[in-house]
Write a protein that binds this DNA or RNA. Structure first.
Length: 296
DNA sequence: TATCAGGTCAGGG
DNA sequence: CCCTGACCTGAT
């Protein structure tokens, strides 16, 4: 008989968080137990939300889960620190339980390298394919007795040895080169990302940008989703649209004529120390309320 | 068949 | 700083 852990999770929305474009590899469990399963680092975990409690299996992973979903942080204080403009308040009201996940650095960096100019569903396919081919298989029996299976994200060495050509076959296209170079670099220097994480935010952003295929946007994603830098404000096409449409009167700039550098400067100044959270609320709201194909 | 999508790089104002 | 074109691939 399996024993599960129950972790307090006030102001948390598990399913929205997993569907907010931060991570792409979680599986919805179709069986009676419900919930979601997927790997956190090298361990397969099942999570199921019941109100303000998050059930976790195996129970030895409860602390990891708390950290992963940022349940150890006062979410109310974050929300209260946000600007009160209508656009952001509407986005927060849509899904106040959305949290910024703390992902393992390597899989965060490389997943976003493969995300360039891709839709969410494609990013997911690529991630799952890389995991299935080069990751490690894990199994877990859920409370309903059903055994599920999932793969951890492949190590740098596994991807480096695979070779760029083989990676290209995972429908990576031109991103295969970037992924393979990153894998080689981390194979030679396994602690590189740990070193970068210790730098100041600006230094870390510069260091991340030294990876081929990593520009401002992806560097900011790693800072925000993995390195705990809540001020990082990734600007993708969605957020760019939101800023130009909803914030053209907030700053001393012409929304039509200004470039991305000016947008970034405005966002940093206006949204402040928790800007990354503002970005995530705005991004999720824009994506979910725009009429498009309901991405699974 | 042409175009677009959660970007980045190289090359040029 | 800002702008442009190229780049893999799957979907409309």
């Amino acid at each position: 008989m399996t024993t599960l852990a129950s972790v307090p999770c006030p102001q948390f929305d598990l399913s929205e968080t997993l569907d907010s474009g931060q991570v792409f590899h979680w599986h919805l469990h179709e069986g009676p137990a419900g919930g979601f399963f997927g790997c956190i680092g090298k361990e397969l975990v099942w999570v199921h939300q019941r109100g303000d409690l998050l059930e976790v299996l195996p129970q030895t992973m409860s602390e990891e889960v708390r950290r992963y979903f940022r349940l150890d942080q006062d979410h109310r204080a974050i929300l209260d620190s946000m600007p009160t403009d209508p656009a952001l308040q509407a986005a927060i009201a849509y899904c106040p339980g959305l949290r910024i996940i703390r992902q393992p650095a390597w899989e965060c960096l490389t997943t976003f390298i493969t995300s360039s100019l891709k839709q969410v569903e494609h990013i997911r396919q690529i991630s799952l394919q890389l995991r299935a081919r080069y990751g490690e298989e894990h199994r877990l029996t859920l409370p309903d007795g059903i055994e599920v299976q999932a793969f951890s994200y492949p190590s740098p060495t596994a991807l480096a040895e695979a070779g760029e050509g083989a990676l290209r076959e995972c429908r990576l296209g031109y991103r295969a080169k970037s992924l393979h170079l990153a894998a080689q670099r981390l194979t030679e220097n396994p602690s590189l990302l740990n070193q970068i994480q210790r730098l100041s935010t600006d230094e870390a952003r510069t260091a991340l940008s030294s990876f081929y295929g990593v520009g401002e946007k992806i560097a900011d994603c790693v800072l925000l989703f993995s390195f705990d830098r809540l001020s990082a404000f990734p600007i993708d096409v969605w957020i760019e649209r939101v800023l130009r449409q909803s914030y053209q009167d907030e700053g001393p700039w012409n929304a039509k004529a200004t470039g991305k550098a000016q947008l970034a400067a405005f966002a940093k100044a206006y949204f402040g120390e928790h800007g990354g959270y503002a970005q995530q609320f705005l991004f999720h709201f824009a994506r979910k309320t725009s009429r498009r194909t309901p991405d699974s």
